[in-house]
Amino acid sequence: MLSFLRAPLPPKTDRASDNPIVYEDGASYLEFRTSPESNYLLRNQHPPFDKENPSIMVPPFHYHIHQTEHFRIVSGEFHLFKDTADIPWKTLSADDPNGLKTAFIPPMQYHTINNASTTEPLVLDVSLTPEDVEGEERFFRNFFGYLDDCRKAGQKPSFFQLMVFLQSSDTPLGLPIAPKWLGIAASHLFMHGMGFFGRWILGYRSTYEEYYVEKKAV
Rank of each mutant, 00 (worst) to 15 (best):
M1S: 12
A7M: 12
P8S: 08
L9H: 10
P11G: 02
K12P: 06
D14L: 02
D14K: 12
S17V: 15
S17P: 10
D18S: 08
D18Y: 06
I21S: 10
I21K: 09
V22Y: 12
Y23G: 05
D25H: 05
G26A: 06
G26D: 11
A27D: 09
Y29G: 11
Y29D: 13
Y29F: 15
Y29E: 12
L30P: 04
E37M: 06
N39Y: 04
N44T: 14
N44D: 14
D50E: 03
S55E: 06
I56R: 00
M57R: 15
F61S: 01
Y63C: 01
I65A: 13
T68V: 11
E69Y: 07
S75I: 04
F78M: 06
H79D: 13
D83Q: 13
A85V: 04
I87D: 00
T91G: 11
L92T: 11
A94S: 15
A94W: 07
N98P: 07
L100I: 13
I105R: 01
I105P: 05
P106S: 11
M108I: 14
Q109R: 12
Y110A: 15
H111P: 09
T112G: 02
N114C: 13
N115G: 10
A116R: 07
S117K: 02
T118W: 09
T119Y: 04
T119L: 04
E120P: 03
E120M: 05
L122E: 00
L124W: 06
D125A: 10
E134Q: 11
F139H: 10
N142I: 02
N142C: 09
N142M: 07
F144D: 15
R151C: 03
K156F: 02
F159L: 14
M163G: 02
M163F: 10
F165A: 03
S168I: 13
S168G: 13
D170P: 06
P176W: 04
P176R: 04
K180Y: 13
W181Y: 14
W181Q: 15
G183Y: 00
I184H: 03
M191W: 05
M191S: 06
H192T: 08
F196T: 15
F197A: 06
E210G: 05
E210Y: 02
E210N: 12
E210K: 06
Y211M: 04
K216G: 07
K216V: 03
A217Q: 15
